[in-house]
Amino acid sequence: MRTTLPDHWIEHHREGGERVGWIVPAGADFLAFDALGRQATREPVDWLTAEEALEELGLRFLGDRFVLDVEGTGGSGGATARPVRIAEVSTDGITVVTDEFGGASAVGSGAQTIRLPFPAPDTLRSADGQR
């Protein structure tokens, strides 16, 4: 199901035309949101600072390893942290591919794809401990 973004979310594109996020009015200032729909500035900032935050972040983080907490897969019925890589991001949703042992892109790896809502849920986090 496609997420309809509020009208006040303003797409921000880098020079090559790729959308790297959104800038959202917050009082007299702005908040930046990354391609996953997550807040990229901790507090409201001026427009230029919001643009700079998105430009600096870019899309490179999408190539990083992530961890997805999957409910009900742990031995005690709790969540299991599964290594994943992001395969696709849009406001329609986020697709991740399981990446046990770094084999997500190997032919015949049997990697599982998991569809997540947009914006990304808190159960998806960077493998290096960052949000």
Rank of each mutant, 00 (worst) to 15 (best):
R82F: 14
I94C: 02
A26Q: 12
Q130F: 04
D69Y: 03
A111V: 10
V45G: 11
W47F: 10
A104W: 13
R60L: 11
D99C: 00
V67K: 00
P121E: 00
G129R: 00
Q112S: 13
V20P: 13
G102V: 15
A50Y: 12
T113H: 05
A127M: 04
I23S: 12
L57E: 07
I23C: 09
P117C: 15
R60E: 08
G17D: 15
Q112T: 09
F101Q: 06
G21R: 09
P83E: 05
V96K: 03
S126H: 09
T49S: 08
A79P: 03
A120F: 13
L62M: 02
T73G: 03
V89S: 06
S90T: 14
G37Y: 07
T80P: 04
Q112H: 03
L59C: 02
T80Y: 15
G78P: 01
I114A: 02
I86E: 11
M1P: 15
R82C: 14
V96H: 09
I10C: 06
I86R: 08
E51N: 00
A28G: 07
L54N: 01
P83K: 00
L36E: 00
G21S: 10
E55L: 03
A40Q: 01
G16D: 10
P119Q: 07
G102I: 04
P119D: 01
D34E: 01
D34F: 02
V97C: 03
R115P: 11
E56P: 05
E100D: 04
E18P: 07
P83Q: 01
Q39F: 05
S90N: 14
G108F: 10
G37L: 12
R19P: 12
E56C: 08
F30I: 11
